[in-house]
Design a binder for these strands. Sequence first.
DNA 1: GAAGATTGAAACCTCAATCTTT
DNA 2: AAAGATTGAGGTTTCAATCTTC
Lengths: 352, 352
Amino acid sequence: MKPTPFEPLPEVAPLRRALREIVRALGALERGQPELGLTDSQAHALAAIERGVELTTGELAALLRLDKSTASRVVAELVRGGLVAAGEPGDDRRRKPLRLTAKGRARVAGVHERADRQVHEALAPLGEAERRLAVEGVTLYARALDRLERRRAFEVRPIARRDDAAVAAIIRAVMTEFGASGPGFAIHDSEVDAMYDAYRPPGAGYFVLEREGRVTGGAGFGPLGGGDAGVCELRKMYFLPETRGLGLGQIVLERVQQAAAAAGYHTMYLETLGTMKQARKLYEAAGFRKLGGPLGSTGHFGCDAWYAKALGGPAAAAAEGGEAQAAASRARGGRKAGARARAASSAQPKKA
Amino acid sequence: MKPTPFEPLPEVAPLRRALREIVRALGALERGQPELGLTDSQAHALAAIERGVELTTGELAALLRLDKSTASRVVAELVRGGLVAAGEPGDDRRRKPLRLTAKGRARVAGVHERADRQVHEALAPLGEAERRLAVEGVTLYARALDRLERRRAFEVRPIARRDDAAVAAIIRAVMTEFGASGPGFAIHDSEVDAMYDAYRPPGAGYFVLEREGRVTGGAGFGPLGGGDAGVCELRKMYFLPETRGLGLGQIVLERVQQAAAAAGYHTMYLETLGTMKQARKLYEAAGFRKLGGPLGSTGHFGCDAWYAKALGGPAAAAAEGGEAQAAASRARGGRKAGARARAASSAQPKKA
DNA sequence: GAAGATTGAAACCTCAATCTTT
DNA sequence: AAAGATTGAGGTTTCAATCTTC
């Protein structure tokens, strides 16, 4: 079976070309620091030890994305050369914090001089505007890659009964954080402590976000009380602070929409607060349209902003005809687990 | 002796940080293509063979910036796996052009799918403007690195007698290329065939640009006929087409200015044509100011644009006081050979 | 002799197993 | 048993020497 057909963004091809060039050129230019008598890893390790305080070999490995065995050997060689010394073992004698010797500090200055000159020489012929553009663009992509890597640590899956306590704790923590704990807010819904039962399919569903076995957020859907039977409500989308800003909101939201479409709904509706700007940005980026007033009767009179979106399922096709947005979502939704991130801007909690 | 103190551009530090992140993240994300059963080098090699026509192992090595021995082993492994086949040895039986088998083409499609998805997933959460910024910035820096790498193949050195024939040929070729071969142009100066003798210090100097033993351009200075004794003229700056666009003009120009300042001149003057836009851009970027008319009497009445610049030497300090531009030039000029590029935009021939 | 390619030795890196301390 | 670090085996890459063809 072939992997899901998939339409890369138009920016992907030129960016890949440019990145290939950069990685190779850097590799070729940086290769070996013969005049300094250091391998690349040694030079990187020295710089990392200089930056970090009380860095241990294991932490160094993580920083340099090297295997800890490699880090161990690199450090051993640097110690042998008198550039690095293992500090006092403190309380915990397993830890051996690393520090630079005077000789090591002198050498790392040479490493920086060389690297600075390298980058400087590449940039110098450019005009100031071009230099700024280069820095901004490269920085932007570096951040995007970092977020991608951190997103990959998360998985989205349907809620299980054992998640009930964790999910309830998250809902209460986030609503309290946002001061949405008074009457008319979802924190008082009786279902909070029994989400697994409250959102059992068909007609409803709840998904949690998990990292290393720990649940850190979730979102679900269910029928819209007092409304059209073809309309569902996006409900209880909450993320712990550590989860935000990685683009996970979009991913969870896509998963929920996909499940709602499969359950036969043609439209998704949601209620939130005008003051929750980041959450509203997420909804708008996902294709939700702002409404002039509420739909149905959810009892959440604390809310003051309402959104809706046509879903890309068969029901929506029958009711409205699929939009491009919905079609794209459907095409991408088919991949295994959806654990791999591939969309979304920043995520914020929603009250509902 | 310490290397020359040197003040990196303000963009250098943030760019280095971002590049470090990108290289590490790409390394971590790309590492191993286990599901495809290929090493990184194998995957890159397949992609390169797909792109190139009649690629040989040696060319592949250059493209991938790998040692030819590595390329040889990588290719051998791909052939063993039935992904690549060595084509017909044509006329020259030393060459073994590589091509993909059907199986290889299928596999490389998987490689691209994977890489596209990678980049797509990183970009998707960004807005369109941010995506464009990332692509432009990264592309810009990739080009800057490429130019840097190609500049490094060149060296600037004083002219030797054995260069006379090559330099004369370059001057005639470039002037003819630009249609500046009529009367009133420097192509008719008697010195063209004996540049070494004509530009012997003190009071004059000529520098050539050399790559792999072949001279590809040059520029020099000498006293300005009929002018102030403290003013010199920039003379006979010409580059073969293959040399242009790498930022070498700025480097040669700096070297000439440095030598002129050391020879006791306080000002450098030059004559060119208004139609030579790229050359004029270079002069302006180097700090030359446009004049309203000619200085001295060079006999080059074909010229219609005149520039001058105060040099950063002791004579200039006495005459005018050093400018920031001149001071920066002096600070950087001290490095060995100046063969390493570190300034300049595109280079174009000048008539003088 | 030179260009294209291959082979042998050594360096660097990773995976897996092991050692030490908590 | 778990956390931190080291050691042994094997893969990938480079440098240098060699082979083949022009």
